[in-house]
Amino acid sequence: MELSKILVSFFGLQFLLFLSPSHAVPGNSNTFREYIGAEFNGVKFSDVPIRSGVEFHFILSFAIDYTTSSPAPTNGQFNIFWDTDNLTPSAVSAIKDQHTNVKVALSLGGDSVGGSSAYFNPSSVDSWVSNAVSSLTDIIKQYNLDGIDIDYEHFQADPDTFAECIGKLITTLKNNGVISFSSIAPFDDDEVQSHYKALWKSYGHIIDYVNFQFYAYDEGTTVSQFMDYFSTQRSNYEAGKILVSFATDGSGGLSPENGFFTACSILKSKGELAGIFVWSADDSKSNGFKYEKQSQAILGIPH
C-alpha cells in the first residue's frame, strides 16, 4: 500500500514537471552589456571599467550586410562597420585574456549606414541565411567573438521572413559551435515590434537576452512609467531575459539622473533584474564611465 502511494506521488510529480514551461521565469542576474565602436571616437575596450563580479559583454557595433563603399544591400554578405583601428582582433584577445569574465559579441544592422537607413533586405530566406552564415562565421572567427546581437531597425521584408532568416542564422551558428549566445534589441515601435515578436514566437527558445531599448522611450520617462514599460515588454517577450537599459548620449528614456538605478533596485528586490546594458561606450568616454561603474556595482552585489 505504501509503495503504491509513493509511486502515485512520483508519477504525479513527473506529470507536473511535464506541464511546466521549458523556460523558467528569469530571476536576477549579474549580466552587464555595452555597445562599443559605432562612433569612431577612439574608445578602446581597455578604457571601460570592468568589475570582476559581473558577466561582462562588449557588443561591437555594427556588422551590416551592405557594401562598405557607396553602401548598398548585399543579401546577407556582412561587412564590418565598427572602429577597426581601435577594436581589433588582438584587442579582443587582450581584453578577454586580462578579464576572464569578459565576452565579446557583434551586433547586426543598427539604425543607419552611410547616412541612410540600414534595411533588412533579403532576396530569399535560403540565400540570405547561406550568405550570412558564411560571412559572419569568417568575422566571428577572425575576431574570436562569442555571440551575436540582432539590432535591425528598418525592414524591407515581412515579419515572418525576418523571423525565419534570423532564427535559422542563430540556430546554424549555435549548432556549428560558432557562437554561444544571442540577443535581440527591439524597441517600442509597431513595425519593429511586429518583426521581433514574430521572431520571438518561433525562435525565442534560442535567444538568450532581450536588449530592449528602453532609452527609445520619451526623454523624461519617470520611474513608474519605466516599471510599466518593463512589465509590458516582459509580456511581449515572455520568459525572456529582459535587460534594462539607458543611453549615455542623452537620447531618451529613464536616465541615471532621473531614477534609472532606483528602478533597478526595485526590480532587483522583486527578483526581476536580468541585467543592464548601455548605449554606448563611445558616448560614456567623456564622462569617465561613471554610470557603467554604478551599473556594475548594483549587479555585483549579492542577490
Results as ranks from 00 to 15, higher is better:
residue 74 T to P: 02
residue 209 Y to N: 01
residue 83 D to L: 04
residue 237 Y to A: 06
residue 255 S to F: 07
residue 56 F to S: 00
residue 93 S to D: 12
residue 76 G to F: 02
residue 67 T to V: 13
residue 170 I to L: 09
residue 292 E to G: 03
residue 231 S to V: 15
residue 128 W to V: 04
residue 297 A to H: 10
residue 195 H to A: 04
residue 113 V to T: 04
residue 75 N to C: 03
residue 40 F to V: 03
residue 41 N to P: 02
residue 193 Q to E: 14
residue 202 S to H: 12
residue 295 S to Q: 03
residue 161 T to P: 01
residue 39 E to S: 12
residue 248 T to S: 08
residue 77 Q to R: 09
residue 3 L to F: 08
residue 156 Q to A: 11
residue 92 V to M: 04
residue 26 P to N: 11
residue 290 K to R: 10
residue 227 M to T: 08
residue 160 D to H: 09
residue 219 E to K: 14
residue 18 F to N: 13
residue 111 D to K: 07
residue 195 H to V: 06
residue 233 Q to S: 05
residue 247 A to T: 10
residue 293 K to F: 14
residue 24 A to V: 09
residue 77 Q to C: 08
residue 117 S to Y: 12
residue 22 S to H: 13
residue 216 A to K: 13
residue 21 P to G: 13
residue 263 A to E: 02
residue 183 S to Y: 05
residue 54 V to I: 06
residue 91 A to R: 01
residue 27 G to Y: 09
residue 91 A to P: 00
residue 133 V to F: 04
residue 293 K to Q: 15
residue 257 E to P: 04
residue 155 F to W: 11
residue 296 Q to K: 08
residue 158 D to M: 07
residue 268 K to A: 02
residue 276 I to R: 00
residue 291 Y to K: 14
residue 276 I to M: 04
residue 264 C to L: 11
residue 232 T to D: 14
residue 272 E to S: 04
residue 87 L to H: 03
residue 300 G to S: 07
residue 10 F to L: 15
residue 302 P to S: 08
residue 33 R to W: 12
residue 112 S to C: 14
residue 57 H to M: 08
residue 51 R to A: 10
residue 183 S to K: 05
residue 286 S to Q: 09
residue 188 D to F: 15
residue 36 I to R: 00
residue 260 F to Q: 08
residue 164 E to D: 14
residue 216 A to R: 09
